[in-house]
Amino acid sequence: MTESKPPQRGVLDDAWEQELVMGQEAAGEAGDLEADLAMLHLLRHARDPEPLGEDALGDVLAQVRAAGAQAAAPWWRHSLIRWVAVPACAGLAVVLIVRPGEGDRATVAAVAIDERGGDALSDRQEAFAEATVPARRGSSPAKPYETQFAALEGSARESLRDAVFASRSLARHDWLASLGAEKQLHEERDASAGSRGVR
């Protein structure tokens, strides 16, 4: 008695898939065929690869590249760290080092004014400083908020004085600049009038 041999089938034969599905149906839809079908598709693809379209291939390559780059690059080589965080830290350091302290601010303003030839302003600044000091009298030491005000008053008046002084300096600078522009305009007018007279 000869044993009936199963029919010769290629890997790509659809009968594999059909038999698997029929078997599952016969068993009352029990079991999961996903893994078997996936293996079947893989074998079929290995035997006869299906070409990918250009777009699909591009997508796959991009995904592979991104996954590889993410895994390979250390955290400090990420673009966000290199191009934003590092310069941000540098800018922070520059400002912290370069920015003048509060104590230097008045000096900086005074130097700026001296450079513009505003020496006479210093007398007025001192006068204003003296004028603001007497306002602190009359405080009652019995109240805690008055004690706190006494502690904070000096710094507050200094800030106030700086603000007024800076405004006065800038206003004076604008005024001098406008005077200079006006003078230059007059000179140009005189020069043009003179040239017309010569002609």
Binding site: W83, A88, C89, A90, G91, V95, S167, R168
Partner: peptide, 29 residues
């Protein structure tokens, strides 16, 4: 990216180091 980082860093530093008693400048000096 560098420029953005620098600007962000400087703005942060300026805001962080600002004194509580700094006076906002006037429009009309």
């Amino acid at each position: 990216g560098c420029m953005c980082g620098l600007v962000v860093g400087m703005a942060l530093a300026w805001a962080m180091t600002g004194k509580a008693q700094d006076v906002k400048p006037p429009q009309d000096r």
